[in-house]
Amino acid sequence: MQKVFGRPKGLTEIPFHYCPGCTHGIIHRLIGEVLEELNIIEDTIGVAPVGCAGFSLDFFSCDFVGAAHGRAQAVATGIKRALPDRIVFTYQGDGDIAAIGTSHAIHVAARGEKITSIMVNNAIYGMTGGQMAPTTLTGQVTTTSPYGRDNGVAGFPLDLPKAIATFDGAVYVASVSVDSPKNILQAKKAIKKAFRVQQAGLGFALVSILSTCPTNWGMSPVDSLKWLQEKMIPVYQMGEIKVAEEVKGL
């Protein structure tokens, strides 16, 4: 019998602990496939955030380091400066990278730090039980915005990739989604390109991935995908936001 589907070598045998319908699992798989296809599992060091993906360090088969909340990109900088020939990536939620750790997001981009950052945007703080995130949509109800996010009080959703694209050192910035088979394929392409940018030593690469949180959104997995498509995609700039000249040839 021919095997047509299996676990990518970039992932370990440990089962994901994520909630039913959560799309972290899809994103993990895409990264696992990319690590395998680029043949970089043994050269890669990942940096995990604090948040739902805090345990992602068990799920990937490369070396992994767990950073303090928001500090993954600073930790990744230290690793990369110590080992310039290795591949270093961060896997961070929106709260981690776009709130408590924003200063590092800006400065790794400005420095052109040769690392790859994967940002998972589900518009909420998942691990702590559904609080408002920097990416929470206007009017969205969370436990810390129980009457809906009020722009007058809590400001506006933060579109980090758009900002990061303005920095010279950021050479590849993309915003993708994992809500449909077509978009999942697009997401994988973007992730793969972000790693290849690092292999070529071109600069900083960021891929933001819109993701669902059925548990904290209080929706079924199917409704969650629909909500992502109808509510989130219109708010965030999608697609390849920045492809620097030197990246186009990849």
Partner: peptide, 26 residues
């Protein structure tokens, strides 16, 4: 060697964390 002037003290100590995890004297 390399001296990297970090964006803040918090970044600096976490860069040290990464470099030490990678086995460097930092």
């Amino acid at each position: 060697g390399t001296v990297l002037q970090a964006e803040c003290e918090v970044a600096a100590i976490n860069m040290c964390f990464g470099a030490a995890a990678a086995g460097a004297r930092v």
